[in-house]
Design a protein around this nucleic acid. Sequence first.
DNA 1: AACAAGATTAACT
DNA 2: GTTAATCTTGTTA
Length: 219
Amino acid sequence: MMDFSDGNQKPMNPHIIIPDEFYLSEDVVGLARDMIGKLLIKRNENDLMVSVITETEAYAGETDRASHAWNRRRTARTEVMYSNGGVCYVYLCYGMHHLLNIVTAPEGIPHAVLIRSILPLSGFDSVKKTKTGAKNLIKSGIGPGRLTRLLGIDMKYNGQSLCDGEKIWIEDCGLNFKEFIAVTKRIGIDYAGADAELPYRFVVESEIADREIKKAGLF
DNA sequence: AACAAGATTAACT
DNA sequence: GTTAATCTTGTTA
């Protein structure tokens, strides 16, 4: 068992950067599940925004009617989805919301995992007072459009690497939410026919995530 | 060139 | 429960 204490009673958070190979699995549904409970870190000018991923959806590329890359649609918008796994795919939805995806699988396979909600943990003091930040931080990261606004993610992050330690990345802090993960069909993709019924959405309630994080003595 | 639809959200009634 | 906001994209002509 690793000792994460810093010798000063205060728990130190284990920041284990995920290896690049993590993103190269072709099991995008398994990856979407595995990303639940991982930390999403965003570097700002003067601080780090640390949150835990609480909801994801898998988009399985060219064979998935719900995916932007369905039926080999390789266009200016979807090109980044064909990149080697480990970069962001950001697009504008309904003309106003930026949605954050994590591209997975080796180059040429346009898999992606949509981040649908996060639980903010630290580094959000600057947005607490804003409408976006809201009084209730637990709720402020719920919804794919809200979390990007909270984190300040826009089209500039399209194609941004998660493996260079620069602006945004994922870490493993040892949290295991497996027993709390609910699996459902995906949201807002009724146009996808039979694929709309696939069990590709993974979610853990924010209140449970909050409880488990406190129980583990993290943050 | 025109047009419909969209991996959503907030503010209504 | 319903609807406006808002604009890029993919499709059709």
